[in-house]
Design a protein around this nucleic acid. Structure first.
Lengths: 148, 148
DNA sequence: CAAAAACCCTACCTTAGAGGTAGGATATAA
DNA sequence: TTATATCCTACCTCTAAGGTAGGGTTTTTG
């Protein structure tokens, strides 16, 4: 039960974008160096975030990425699902395809339980907005600055 | 973000064990057929559950598996961690090894957030006991029986 | 108008883990 | 002593994770 590195990169990257958002778009190159993420790999992460409408891009010189909506309106659940696709804690929980084996009562009693677990998780992830992440991030920087 | 098939098998298997528990030990062969799980594969699942002390075995003829403690004292979290190891929603959340990159403030502010997500998930999983699973399972069987 | 600076699209590569099969050893009841 | 079970270990195949790479397109700017 683990989130992928790609997902973790996405979270760190979008924080970096949000920090600059008022001033100028953030570029893949600078995000990559600041966050120690492989640059070419990060490009693909950004593509996924853009595809899901979380960020928008401007091409060419002085271009880069901006948030597509406010930091209050972007949640951890949004980011994760942009990268990993719709949440599905076990295979037979997909909505679209009618499942084959699960007509048997025996197997499907458990299905509801998994559904409940998934809901709990999604709820937790939905309650964490990018705005909250930013706040935590900046508090920590202040605390660290005082130590020195 | 998905639990493995092995984990799902484990849950279904331990339900099957619990159903018989008062009368006699459950055998891999019968669990496998009743739950449509590959028999040889299920053997390995059982080994993991036993290793973590959730079930106990008797070998030889008329042998099989029993719960090692009451159904109230076994949770979904127990089962999952017996199969998949300690919960760790992202890599850098391991307790034992001192992390290398994460000394940088930038990266580690996010770490606490992941820790929180993990706690929420574990809490949800801990609240679901095997006893509850059994109850749901048997209710569903009754409901299905009435339909016919 | 050309060149630099960005994003964009697609293909490919390597490795680890998931999911499962298989052989045979060992313990126990009948 | 034989049938019935668990136990231990090795192996196999396929997919996804994680990353690299080549080259294209758009936009600013000197």
């Amino acid at each position: 039960m683990r989130f992928t590195a790609k997902t973790e990169y996405a979270v760190r990257a979008i924080i970096e974008i949000a920090l600059l958002d008022k001033d100028r778009p953030a570029q893949v190159k600078e995000i990559a160096t600041r966050q120690a993420i492989p640059e070419r790999f990060l490009e693909q992460v950004m593509a996924a975030l853009k595809k899901d409408g979380l960020i928008e891009s401007t091409r060419g010189s002085q271009g880069g990425y901006r948030l597509a909506r406010s930091a209050e309106q972007i949640t951890l659940a949004d980011i994760i699902q942009a990268i990993e696709g719709p949440m599905q804690v076990i295979e037979c929980l997909s909505e679209d395809l009618r499942n084959q084996k699960c007509e048997q009562v025996d197997l499907c009693a458990v299905r509801d339980v998994w559904k409940g677990v998934q809901s709990s998780l999604l709820e937790a992830l939905d309650s964490i907005t990018l705005a909250k992440l930013l706040e935590k991030y900046q508090n920590q920087r202040k605390a660290k600055a005082q130590q020195v």
